[in-house]
Amino acid sequence: MILTLEGISKRFGALTALAGLDLAVAEGEFLALLGASGSGKSTLLRIVAGFEEPDAGRVLIAGRDMAGLPPRLRPCAMMFQSYALFPHMSVHDNIAYGLRRAGQYDPRRVEELLALVGLSGLGARRPQQLSGGQQQRVALARALARRPPLLLLDEPLAALDAGLRAATGAELRRLQRETGTSFVMVTHDQQEALALADRIAILEGGRIAQIGPPQEVYARPASRFVAEFLGAANILATPAGPAALRPENIRIDPAGAWRARILARSFRGDAWALECALPDGQRLRVLRPACEPVPEEGADVTLAWEEAALVPLPA
């Protein structure tokens, strides 16, 4: 395990950020920590990096207890959400900063890193002269310079334009594979987490509510919170107890068993998002491909779904 967290707790005054959180990250793994804002995910990253001390619990990196070690002595590196590039230094000097501190400065290594993130020839520029996407890559190169076994990424794509995010995410994934570095990425964007990570961990109330491969967590949410947070599942009351039903697993089918009225519909480009009501008043979110004809608002339809699409949840 490159990173092991045991019973991490942290309070800020009356606010409990983390409540006995356990987590293990394997070598070479890309883990995404997914949580709503205020779920303590950034605090967790700052505890691993050494900027905050946990009130209780242990942080082990590559098996070594990090208690009392300042950030500079920890083997991990951090990429900040705002990138935190040094404005008074060139791109080259930014990337060389960690190497210089360690007495490992070699201009060829800096060139190699610039090439790795596709910024060859831009070493003499100042960070302010680069686009947001280029700055993001400088921050990544700077964090990777000393070949840390573990990289912590705080919302690495949040500051980018929507159009740039997917491509940059794929780039992140490629670099993670190429360098063999373990990535722990904090994000509030579930698409990002699902698309990039080997495993996703969902934070709730200062603990990990569920952890596993994206497909598995998405298909088999372990709790009502995870089901609603990830993919906005409908929660149905069935004779066997509550069950989650994904909006995209509900069909509009004349032969369906469930009568419903369409209250609202909105076009999302690739899909229709419908808000339907069953006769007993229960609301259902339904997602249909854009190519499918969808009745007007106020229309009465019948809905259908496979029995297997219902995921039983703990009551």
Partner: peptide, 24 residues
């Protein structure tokens, strides 16, 4: 965050001051 980034990259408090706080 600039000073935190410097510390994270291996700079001692004095080096953080002279390489980041002071020039910035």
């Amino acid at each position: 965050r600039l000073e935190e980034a410097a510390a994270d990259l291996g700079a001692s408090p004095a080096v953080v001051f002279f390489t980041v706080t002071l020039p910035a």
